[in-house]
Nucleic acid binder design. Structure first.
Lengths: 132, 132
DNA sequence: ATTTATGCAAACTATTTGCATTGCC
DNA sequence: GGCAATGCAAATAGTTTGCATAAAT
């Protein structure tokens, strides 16, 4: 593994957030000013395929990456957009019981109104549609 | 609502599949040969926002649309790619119990090896990584 | 007639890829 | 030296948008 590759991997691993490619690019640039976007993409794709990092899809138009490999899923606040890890105990078993096919993995996104936003406006869930 | 809008909506509503924008475009074209992609997108976005149809994200690089508004989620076979509706009884309650924030809605994708693919190669889950 | 929707093309965002060059064992 | 990784720029895919025209009420 090259020094650049180590740096990309470290950036994702060290962060506790869910990073966009742009954010990773910016962070890696501080050590490797000439790094190219294409290289960032190529390596992130490889790392995700090799299960060194995890790709998180479906949150916005762009994928995010995280270093946390422990099995978990995510919630996103519909009001402020904040993404949070969630651990649902027994989720796979709960679902597997009800499915004929063999479950390999799950991608669960829980759309919430987080407690902060709920405090700011307790009418969130009483308005039109889903409260947006 | 214009005749074109009715046609776009009908195409999605009448189908029992999960349609890509391209597929919807092609179907609408048979009645409105000069329809533009931009118009398809504009209307699908509006219909989804108005909850006349549902947008399904996270399955591939492109969003899909479906007319089925009953609450349900999806599974996708990692081998053949087939997308299937799944209904998990009590899922929202199961998750809500374990989450501090107020759950509004869920997007669940169950990654499976469908029974057809399992029959063709019963070693799917025994190989490297996730059997791909 | 006036408002709203449409077609078209250009713009935009996210991502991938070909290729000449560089860096590493 | 030779193979793999990188930078760069162009290409691709999906989607959005500005604007002049056309359709609907």
């Amino acid at each position: 593994m090259t020094r650049l590759q180590k740096s990309i991997l470290e950036v994702v691993k060290r962060s506790e957030a869910h990073l966009s490619v742009k954010e990773i690019y910016a962070l890696v640039q501080s050590d490797f000013p000439t790094v190219a976007m294409g290289t960032i993409y190529r390596n992130l794709n490889q790392f995700a395929e090799d299960r060194l990092i995890r790709r998180v899809s479906g949150l916005g138009s762009a994928d995010l990456f995280e270093g946390n490999l422990a099995i978990h899923n995510h919630s996103q606040c519909l009001s402020c957009g904040k993404v949070t890890d969630v651990h649902i105990l027994g989720l796979k078993e709960f679902i597997q019981e009800q499915i004929g096919d063999e479950t390999v993995s799950l991608d669960l996104l829980v759309n919430v109104i987080c407690s902060d936003c709920m405090k700011k406006d307790s009418n969130f869930l009483k308005g039109t549609k889903d409260g947006k």
